[in-house]
Computed example of a mutant assay.
Amino acid sequence: MDQQAGDPRTDRRALAAASLTVVLWASAFVSIRSAAAHYDPGALALGRLLTASLALGLVLLVKRVPFPPRGAWPGILASGVLWFGLYMVALNWGEQQVDAGTAAMVVNIGPIVIALLSGWLLKEGFPPMLLAGMGVSFAGAAVVGLSTSKGGSSSVLGVLLCLLAALTYGAGVVAQKPALSYASPIQVTTYGCFTGTLVTLPFAGQLLEQLPQAPLSATLNMVYLGLFPTALAFSTWTYALSRTTAGKMGATTYAVPATVVLIAWIVLGEVPGWLTLLGGAICLAGVAVSRQRPGRPPARAAS
């Protein structure tokens, strides 16, 4: 089922799906701000995953999607535990301990982890343009992080939690890629989400306790996180991942910091400073570089 990006049409479809993922994941940061003020990290992760599991489970029933084959399960379980489960709890908790700028810089180690692990374990190699683009994008993410950092509000625990989030995110993506050779994107996403929900079930008591006390806006934001940045965005992610390399997909997520800045500007009226805008532009430039194919001859002018 795995389709590599040899066909330009396939690559365009993958890029479109990845772009939707980036926008939805960026919007999640705005929703998390509201929900995290009223839900503990584990409770928020469980509520988000329960919502996503219900939506994706309904899709499975309506489309009568079969059970994933045996060969897909190692990747599904690994990505479910690492990415859907541990990542979401660690990120929610870490962002309570450090400022947003520090969190963004540390978590953006994730795509580098993806490139290294996929190059080694998945035999994708280390394309020079991909590595160069990731280097440029990471520099841009660091600029965005520095420009939005409040300073003095970081803790060792918070940095370690964000680092754990980056590592589990990277490892989860690399585990997901082989599963797509056996199962469809909707199967890999849905059963990975089910697995993450089981991992976060120990926080059910917290969720039941905090649900009646939280304002409606916080709960609606948690539901939004489940339906769109999780159920929909993870589905478009796996669709794109099945059609391109894990390294390229990881590099594409460097567009998230720039998109977060834009959404916060439009939705929250948070006007970014020039340094933030510069960092966002560098991130996008790096993504463009990472998706270039070396050795392509320049287009000939029409005569």
Rank of each mutant, 00 (worst) to 15 (best):
V59G: 04
V59M: 02
L60V: 13
V62R: 06
V62P: 07
K63Y: 06
K63I: 02
R64L: 05
R64P: 06
R64V: 09
R64Q: 13
V65T: 14
V65Y: 07
F67I: 14
F67K: 11
F67R: 14
F67G: 12
P68N: 08
P68C: 13
P69H: 08
P69D: 06
P69W: 00
R70N: 12
G71P: 01
W73E: 03
W73N: 07
P74C: 05
P74L: 08
G75E: 04
I76V: 06
I76N: 00
L77M: 06
A78M: 13
A78T: 11
S79G: 13
S79M: 15
S79V: 05
G80T: 01
G80R: 01
G80L: 00
V81M: 09
V81I: 15
L82A: 11
W83P: 05
W83A: 10
W83E: 11
W83K: 08
F84P: 04
L86V: 11
L86E: 07
Y87Q: 10
Y87H: 13
Y87W: 07
Y87T: 08
M88D: 09
M88V: 13
M88Q: 14
A90V: 10
L91T: 13
N92I: 09
N92H: 02
N92L: 07
W93Y: 04
W93S: 05
W93M: 12
W93Q: 03
G94D: 08
G94Q: 09
G94N: 01
G94C: 05
E95Y: 05
E95C: 11
Q96R: 15
Q96L: 15
Q96G: 12
Q97V: 07
Q97L: 09
V98R: 00
D99I: 11
D99P: 01
A100N: 11
A100E: 04
A100C: 09
G101E: 01
G101P: 10
T102A: 06
T102F: 04
T102I: 14
T102R: 00
A103M: 03
A103F: 10
A104W: 08
A104T: 15
A104C: 07
M105K: 10
M105V: 15
M105N: 08
M105W: 08
M105Y: 05
V106W: 00
V106I: 15
V107I: 11
V107K: 00
V107R: 05
N108S: 14
G110W: 15
G110I: 14
G110K: 13
G110T: 15
P111Q: 10
I112F: 11
V113H: 03
